[in-house]
């Protein structure tokens, strides 16, 4: 696997929270979704990856190099946070000039094309923009220096479904180039179901799993059963479970095997939302 970004044993200690040996990698030409509940450690992970906070331990390598080793690396990394980080009285045209002065790879024609495509007025102050327009401007600025890796921290949160769909299409377009990748943190799991190739699930500062989206979608399942059947389920097959009023919801890694084995049970497909919910609110046996 040819990884653009390799994170190994990343740790960061805060009072009451620890990022605990987080490891994953983002292969070339793929979108990696970083999921987890609020406060799980997604943003801390991204901040540590980007050197915005000091790591207590672990390594982060972009194309095999540490971010601090070369300014050139930053030319190849585009980042979009959940809000615009420019003063509200600036205009997209001024942001373009500021960015052009920062990036050697800045492509003004590409930036102007994005502004037209996103219908963003170049001379208007960004304080008059809607949340969606601001995010599109951030994406335009991030893409116009021709990065090979996009890092998105909750970039689609707060946007309406139409706007999110537009933006997700841009991300899919970006990864058409097999040398490009995206690391995308979001708690809107439906977005990730649409675009992600891999899902890394962080819970309470730890990576619970890092799997392909297809494995989660096509192999994971939820057994819906009563107490009697729950008692018969092989404990080694239970990833996590949750008891509702009269029903047990049991997450298993192989739904077809479960359907064959427990013929009286209903085995449903598991969405990423279901999986996240069961891990966060359910109980594990081991």
């Amino acid at each position: 696997m040819d990884a653009i970004l390799q994170v190994e044993n990343l740790t960061k200690q805060y009072a009451g929270f620890q990022l605990d040996h987080v490891s994953f990698s983002v292969p070339k030409g793929t979108i990696m979704g970083l999921i987890g509940e609020n406060g799980a450690g997604k943003s801390t992970t991204i901040n540590a990856i980007l050197d915005l906070i000091h790591k207590d331990g672990g390594t982060v390598a972009f194309w095999g190099q540490e971010l601090s080793s070369s300014k050139q690396l930053k030319e190849d990394i585009g980042v979009v946070f959940d809000d615009i980080n420019f003063y509200a009285a600036l205009t997209p045209a001024q942001i373009g000039k500021i960015s052009a002065a920062a990036y050697q790879q800045w492509d003004e024609v590409m930036y102007q094309d994005f502004l037209k495509r996103f219908q963003l007025p170049a001379g208007k102050e960004i304080k008059t923009f809607s949340k969606g327009m601001k995010m599109k401007l951030c994406i335009a600025a991030a893409l116009s220096h021709k990065p090979k890796l996009l890092i998105l921290d909750e970039a689609t949160s707060g946007l309406d479904p139409v706007m999110r769909d537009d933006i997700l299409d841009i991300f899919l377009e970006f990864v058409q180039d097999e040398n490009h990748s995206i690391l995308m943190s979001s708690h809107i799991t439906t977005d990730l179901e649409k675009v992600a190739d891999y899902i890394t699930f962080i819970h309470q500062g730890k990576v619970l799993f890092c799997k392909t989206k297809d494995e989660l979608r096509y192999q994971y399942g939820i057994i819906r059963c009563g107490a009697a059947l729950f008692g018969q389920i092989d404990r080694t097959e239970i990833l996590t479970y949750r008891k509702d009023d009269y029903q047990w919801n049991v997450l298993v890694a192989d739904k077809e095997k479960a359907a064959r084995k427990y013929k009286n049970a209903v085995v449903d497909d598991a969405t990423i939302d279901d999986i996240m919910l069961l891990y966060v609110k359910g109980e594990q046996l081991n």
Binding site: L52, K71, N85, F86, Y87, S99, A102, Q104
Partner: peptide, 18 residues
């Protein structure tokens, strides 16, 4: 004050500036 208001430093540190 403008930088604080817009959390500019987060953006500046992802640009190719030290």
């Amino acid at each position: 004050a403008f930088d604080d208001n817009s959390k500019w430093v987060r953006h500046a540190l992802i640009m190719p500036v030290s």
